[in-house]
Nucleic acid binder design. Structure first.
Lengths: 235, 235
DNA sequence: ATGGCCAGAATCCTATAGGAAAATCAAATA
DNA sequence: TATTTGATTTTCCTATAGGATTCTGGCCAT
């Protein structure tokens, strides 16, 4: 069964349920961890909780399947995607290692005043006490900052490619709270500094180091940390 | 009128009776050019032609929208995606320039006997007369060969990322028949040779040159060629 | 006691119907 | 003649119902 109380922000708008809202809402539930990885999604229950009929829910799930957030077993229903395996994490970081240093270098070449202000604002949101942050805040910050790098780099296709694959890492980090070390914020500061200094080579290099250390932290988590992330729960 | 069998690189296991067939069939119609870019898709008509009800058609379109092959305007229906603009083509080649040289280098390191045989088979399919080939054969060959490079490289995530974006270039090439020059096949041979020689650096370099020249050919087409690719047809 | 088998229940999947919004076309007026 | 307005038609969008399939629990045989 789905856990109740999914109606939080989008729930009871007046009368007309927009089709895209169902998609966005379900995506938010998955991305926030409200629906954990590997859990079955009952179409009828989801429709009731969203106050719509099963048809738009099915339509939204079909879209989420192409995004890789859910999988459909033809006559057995939909399930959220399983958590990334160790090998898949390594593959994901190989992709990041190709895209992000180049994006950082491009950002260092193209950055304008507005971009720098956006970076400053993002860094300030977490400056101070990284220990007292609520779970998921660091993951959200990380996603936003790397997104800013791509936005500044200016290639929208690459930016979308990044977003499409990065959501899986986001879910992984939410499941294993603790995939971040103290170095994360400092490394972000270094990357932003290189971009501000309009130094493409150093931006790429700091990004490479950041990714390398980040992969190390993630692999430590998946290897040394607890193997179970949620209750065994029926799949 | 249907029975798809358009092979999917991800290889969804057979036996899925109905739902995926509609998706695959529509994708085939778009990828083959049977439904030109920018054309409206009437859900009821498509359902009649496929001998199914509008519901699974709608579900398939929702999935295709997440793949970027169609766009949905909330109360106006679905349309196939417009042809890539010049800027989008450049962005696509920037992405390829990041992914494919690295993939070629990795393929040169990891290639085994079976991979080399697959490359040979692919090259032989077109060896001989590149002028007498039916329209689209070159485009299909190009897509298969670059796909082989990614398969040999061994990172499935990057391979899927490539496939997801490359389909747009495929459609572009079908619309502008003539985006290929005589050099294409020769350049492919050079790339395969470097992979066979287990020379990662040369594989990456030949791939870079190939992409550079390919972009030049494509831009020549979009700039000098005819500006209209189909009848104005209602959008 | 364990494995196979069967019936009930739950779930998914498709089809059809009705309501709403937008596009289209005809007609009337300035 | 050009423009605006109104009604018609097309199309999308959602809800509901029925058929097909799979899962679950209990029963029987070995």
């Amino acid at each position: 069964m789905l856990e109740g109380q999914y109606l939080d922000s989008l729930g009871a708008a007046a009368g007309a349920p927009r089709p895209t809202e169902v998609h966005q809402h379900l995506r938010g539930l998955i991305m926030s961890g409200a629906i954990p990885p590997g859990r079955r999604i009952n179409i009828d229950d989801a429709a009731r909780q969203l106050s719509v009929s099963p048809t738009p829910v099915r339509e939204a799930l079909a879209g989420l399947e192409s995004e890789g957030l859910v999988v459909k077993v033809p006559l057995r229903g939909y399930r959220t995607t399983e958590l990334l395996t160790r090998d898949e994490l390594i593959e994901l970081y190989e992709l990041r290692m190709l895209l992000e240093p180049a994006a950082a270098a491009s950002a260092a070449r193209r950055r304008e005043e507005g971009d720098l202000a956006a970076f400053d604002r993002e860094l300030e949101t977490l400056s101070g006490h990284p220990a007292a942050l609520p779970a998921g805040a660091l993951s959200a910050h990380d996603e936003r900052l790397h997104g800013l790098v791509f936005d500044t780099a200016g290639n929208r296709l690459i930016s979308r490619t990044y977003a499409r694959t990065h959501c899986h890492l986001h879910i992984f980090r939410l499941s294993y709270a603790g995939s971040y070390g103290h170095g994360t914020l400092d490394e972000h500061v270094e990357i932003v500094r290189a971009i501000r200094d309009a130094d493409p080579e150093r931006a790429a290099e700091t990004m490479r180091e950041h990714l390398d250390r980040s992969l190390g932290r993630v692999l430590d988590t998946v290897a040394g940390g607890r193997a179970e992330r949620t209750e065994p729960g029926r799949r």
